[in-house]
Design a protein around this nucleic acid. Structure first.
Lengths: 187, 187
DNA sequence: GTTAAAGCAAACAAAGTGTTCTGTATTGTA
DNA sequence: TACAATACAGAACACTTTGTTTGCTTTAAC
């Protein structure tokens, strides 16, 4: 890819995330992004069709990244399957989230539907594999897998949103304990 | 209130909900609402400052309504406190949701942040009172009330969204069972 | 050094926003 | 019934945003 392309692409992403940390998505205009990135109007539209497409691309990039990290962290440990594991994959994921300023910024404001739906989606994928082959799962509750995966990933999303709303006051380890407390009893 | 006011107000709300069942909130323009309601431009702005204000008002109306219903249904039963109660308050709430076409329409599309935040808020209020004075609550988990309330209401929101995404396939009673299964063990 | 591609600036029509004006129709009340 | 108040409609407005086009300049790749 052309050096110039990479450069402006990066400038757009930077401008966009910078704006997202101050304004909510719906109140950001293409003009804002253009001004912040200091590029020509034509250039923006050469890279992205619309503002929505930009968000979509950003989401794919960010969540592709954390999904990868999570999956590698998951190797061997599983979803709380090995209680002796030093740190759960969830804990890793939380640490990773806390350190990723972009994601926190995106989730801080009345986070856009598109962004949250990516978050959910990526978490569902993350949990689905682990859940259906969860070895120590009693499943004596007779609940549909579909529902359970939604509950597990949904609870995680809600917890993270709550965490961010309260300014990441708790440590990732403590949050991990909270999560275990409400999820383990029902597995 | 003037008869004419009531009439146009109703026309606006009807137009708005009709549009929301086809389009997502962010893609609806004030012009769309004006056209659909068949009113003058001036008239719309005489009633509502902006599109956001309209949504806000609609939310207050809808959720004020269900919150009332829920609270009266809660009287005596509590949040699953009396296991002999014929039907739980949750079950009533689910029935109510299923029958309210407006709410289902609003939650069907990539539901606007504003709308969902009202849903959450109203549910948190609903649960908070019951939770803190929950008689048969062990609380041996040592989790902050704040977190628990968020988890309980958040799980409910996530479940309802999942329910709607799968076209309300399950009966309210069955959904109530799902919810009990994942919430009761942690109370 | 040539070439192809990426960038920029300016201008554009189209659509949306929120306001102001004037005139008309409807209401609740005297 | 008559009157004053007010809700509505329609048109025009200044303004912003969007997405595209045109012509020209810069830059990367070979």
């Amino acid at each position: 890819m052309d050096r110039r392309q990479k450069k402006t692409r990066k400038a757009i992403f930077n401008a966009f995330t910078a704006l997202l940390s101050r304004k909510s998505y719906s109140h950001i205009t293409v003009q804002d992004i253009i001004d912040e990135a200091d590029i020509g109007r034509t250039t923006f539209y050469a890279h992205f069709e619309t503002k929505d497409h930009l968000l979509k691309t950003l989401c794919e990039e960010l969540f592709g990244h954390i999904a990868e990290n999570a999956k590698t962290a998951m190797k061997g440990t599983g979803l709380y399957s090995d209680k002796e594991a030093p740190k759960s994959a969830i804990c890793h994921l939380l640490h990773h989230l806390k350190e990723d300023r972009n994601i926190v910024a995106l989730l801080s404001h009345d986070s856009s539907e598109i962004f949250l739906s990516y978050f959910r989606e990526s978490l569902s994928d993350f949990f689905r594999t682990e859940f259906v082959e969860c070895s120590n799962r009693k499943n004596n509750l007779d609940l549909p897998d579909d529902f359970m995966i939604n509950h597990i990933s949904g609870s995680f999303v809600e917890m993270v949103l709550w965490w961010i709303r309260s300014d990441l006051r708790q440590s990732p380890d403590e949050l991990d304990r909270y999560y275990q407390s409400v999820i383990l009893p029902i597995l």
